[in-house]
């Protein structure tokens, strides 16, 4: 199963801000179908802000984003799981929101079948994460934007996740992932450090009298 009309996500001359402070600027990137892009950079550089901007959750300060409309599946730091609903109920909800009929692919890919009738509140942190990531398979969206997806996953679960991403890329999907670990993917790495915004020059009041 491939994706309908896969599109290239591109951003040009992007500048983004967090809490009113400009964090990244002059950012150009493209994400073609079948491509994975890993974002790297120290804490606070603006990885999360960049991913949220590309997902349309906040507007950019400057620059344009193309090819993002209704094609993005976003997975942030929190999984959006309701603790009182079972694993199946949680997945069914997202499947219905995105108009997908079966949740079987999500249960299989992240080995959740044994946990299907458990309330999500009774899952361990890693199992919750697996549930949150399996939701991506139900969206039917071609561009995955993932923010630290491997937090609290063990080695075998990380392999499961990498397989899911690989399968997604194989179907013509694309993925942008902010992570610090090596997923073993054939992916381009983008270092965000060089795009750090330069603070505006201070009004040099004393300098005028020097």
């Amino acid at each position: 199963m491939g994706y309908v009309a896969p599109m290239t996500l591109s951003a040009s001359d992007l500048a983004i801000s967090r809490g009113g402070v400009r964090v990244l600027e002059n950012l150009n990137l493209t994400l073609a179908p079948g491509q994975a892009l890993i974002l790297r950079g120290p804490n606070g550089i603006g990885k999360t802000t960049l991913l949220r901007t590309l997902s349309g959750l906040q507007p950019p300060l400057a620059g344009t984003i193309a090819g993002a409309d209704d094609r993005i599946a976003y997975a942030g730091h929190s999984d959006g799981i309701k603790p009182t609903l079972t694993v199946t109920e949680n997945l069914n909800f997202w499947a219905r929101v995105f108009g997908t009929s079966s949740i079987q692919v999500a249960l299989d890919s992240f080995r959740l079948a044994d946990l299907a009738d458990r309330p999500a509140g009774a899952l361990s942190a890693g199992q919750k994460r697996r549930l949150g990531l399996s939701r991506l398979l139900l969206t039917g969206r071609a561009i995955w934007i993932l923010d630290e997806p491997t937090v609290s996953l063990d080695t075998s679960a990380i392999a499961m996740f990498a397989d899911a991403v690989r399968a997604h890329l194989g179907q013509g999907g694309s993925a942008m992932i902010a992570t610090h670990i090596d997923l073993g993917l054939d992916a381009e790495v983008m270092e965000l450090g060089p795009f750090k915004a330069v603070p505006p020059p201070l009004d040099d009041f004393d300098g005028a009298f020097a």
Binding site: G56, L57, Y74, S78, D79, F98, G99, R135
Partner: peptide, 16 residues
């Protein structure tokens, strides 16, 4: 509650 557990972020990017 939906804001705390991230559901609102996901709903905002959903087709709805």
């Amino acid at each position: 509650l939906d804001w705390e557990d991230g559901t609102l972020d996901l709903l905002a990017t959903a087709p709805l």
